[in-house]
Computed example of a mutant assay.
Amino acid sequence: MFSSFLKRINKIFSSKKDKYYQEVYSEDDIKENYSNKYIYHRIKLSLKDKTPKVSHRPICPLDKSSFDQINVSELNKNFGRARAKFCVQLGERKVKVHVYKNVYAGFKTSVTAHFYKKKIFNLRYDFKIEDKNDYIAIADLIGLKYLNGEPIEFESEYLVDENNVVLSFTNEFSLILNYHNNSEIYTYIEHLVDLDEAEKKNKVYDRYKKLYRKL
């Protein structure tokens, strides 16, 4: 089945060549982006409006049998040397981020791996895609790998396996694949978001309270 599928999409990829992919964003820009707790919060929040589909195999994009086993050595083996490595502070916790940029199967791709306590909790693929056929080809590949060939709808569905590893999708300015688990860091991030929201509500309350006194 896989060989016939490759023949079907071969025309889509035939004009593409692998090469190093450079982007204009600086390391400081990327670091500032991932210092924002809402980046991680939105990964889990996006699942609420989508339908889960159960994968027939463990969800893991690399050679490891389990997503939780992915380490830096495995990432370097698959993606080459990291183009950037840095730590970001989320409240009182530190997260380490590795950034890889290249072209895989002809797609300009940014891969970011996120670790907490030396354990991976998020692996993000950011594909720079303009051709609709490329979206279809990637969706078909994911369906073939994890759903025995059943289709997957990026806009309305996500994948989950028996270990509660999730593969979710964002399809706006680019195609983003987020692999994520139930790491304790997500619970902590939700706590930070709740504190943030409570502070905002208190500020609004104080503002109207002052206005009330003047009316």
Score class of each variant (00 low, 15 high):
K48I: 09
Y186D: 03
K201M: 07
V97F: 03
D126M: 15
V97G: 15
A137D: 09
I142G: 04
F107D: 08
E150N: 08
N164I: 14
D18W: 04
S66M: 06
D126I: 13
P61E: 04
K119S: 15
S26W: 07
S73V: 10
K53A: 02
L177K: 05
K101V: 05
F154R: 08
I30P: 15
Y205V: 01
Y38N: 11
D196P: 03
K200F: 13
H56R: 11
N182M: 11
K77Q: 13
R83Q: 14
I30C: 13
E150Q: 11
N202H: 06
L47M: 11
F2Y: 07
Y146M: 02
K117S: 14
K108G: 13
L62Q: 06
L211A: 05
R81S: 13
E130C: 02
D49Q: 07
N182I: 14
Y125N: 08
R57G: 00
C60G: 08
R124F: 09
S168H: 07
K132M: 07
K64W: 03
V97L: 05
S15M: 10
T170M: 14
K85S: 11
V165W: 11
E197H: 12
Y100P: 10
K200S: 04
N164K: 13
E153S: 12
S15A: 12
G80C: 08
D134K: 02
N33D: 10
H98G: 04
E150G: 09
V24W: 11
R207K: 11
Y208D: 10
N33C: 12
K37P: 14
Y179E: 11
S4G: 15
R81W: 00
I189T: 01
G106Y: 01
F115K: 06
V111F: 03
K108I: 00
A113C: 13
D126Y: 10
L192P: 14
N171T: 02
H191V: 00
Y34I: 05
E92T: 14
N148W: 11
Y158R: 03
F86S: 05
R8C: 07
I70P: 10
V193E: 06
M1I: 15
H41V: 12
E184N: 10
V103Y: 07
F79P: 12
E153P: 01
F86C: 09
Y212D: 04
N148F: 13
P52G: 06
D28L: 14
G149F: 04
A105P: 11
Y40Q: 01
N182E: 11
V193R: 03
S156K: 15
D126G: 14
G106K: 01
L123A: 09
L141P: 00
T51D: 08
Y208E: 10
S66A: 07
K31C: 09
L215M: 03
K44S: 09
R213G: 15
R57C: 07
K7T: 11
R124W: 10
K201I: 08
L175V: 06
Q22M: 02
Y212F: 12
V54D: 02
C60Y: 08
I189V: 11
N163M: 04
S3M: 04
K85I: 06
Y40N: 02
K108H: 04
S35F: 06
F107E: 05
